[in-house]
Simulated scan of single mutants.
Amino acid sequence: MIGNQRLGLVGVIGGDLLRNAKIPLILLVAVLVSAIFVVTTAHRTRLLTAEREQLVLERDALDIEWRNLILEENALGAHSRVERIATEKLQMQHVDLSQGNIIVKQ
């Protein structure tokens, strides 16, 4: 009991800390704040790592699709090359068989 006031244990401890232990209190707050920053930074790092892995997988899938498109383009290009050589060098012509009569297109 202090004078006519009756303080609780928490009030007495808080008063003592504010009067006598300012530096340890500041250090405690600094430790707690830095711990919170460490936890949030680790969480954000994990999220960004997972996002990066997803983007790498997507890039690999797009790379495979790009290679397949190049192969398809080369295959189709070889067909048109053969057709061009047949018409230019061998003087071959297209034939329309849809009407039953053979009609030569120029």
Rank of each mutant, 00 (worst) to 15 (best):
I2W: 15
I2S: 10
N4I: 13
Q5W: 07
V10S: 12
G11Y: 01
V12A: 11
I13D: 07
G15I: 03
D16G: 05
L17K: 07
A21V: 05
A21Q: 10
K22N: 08
I23T: 14
I23W: 06
P24R: 00
L25Y: 04
I26P: 00
I26K: 09
L27V: 11
L27A: 13
L27Q: 14
V29E: 12
V31Q: 12
S34H: 11
S34R: 14
A35P: 02
I36K: 14
I36Y: 14
F37Q: 10
V38F: 13
V38W: 11
T40D: 11
T41P: 01
T41E: 13
A42F: 06
A42C: 11
H43V: 15
H43E: 14
R44L: 12
R44W: 08
T45I: 04
T45R: 15
R46D: 10
L47N: 09
A50Y: 13
A50E: 14
E53H: 15
E53V: 10
L55A: 02
V56G: 03
L57C: 08
L57G: 10
E58S: 11
R59C: 11
D60F: 11
D63V: 14
I64G: 04
I64A: 08
I64Q: 10
W66G: 09
W66E: 13
R67E: 10
R67G: 05
L69M: 08
L69Y: 12
E73S: 08
A75V: 04
L76M: 03
L76D: 01
S80T: 05
R81V: 07
I85H: 00
A86V: 03
T87K: 05
T87E: 06
E88W: 02
E88I: 08
K89D: 10
L90R: 00
Q91W: 02
Q91R: 03
M92V: 02
M92G: 01
H94W: 06
V95W: 04
D96T: 01
D96N: 08
D96S: 02
L97G: 02
L97Y: 04
S98L: 02
G100Y: 00
G100Q: 00
G100A: 00
N101S: 08
N101H: 13
V104D: 01
V104T: 04
K105E: 09
Q106C: 04
Q106D: 08
Q106N: 08
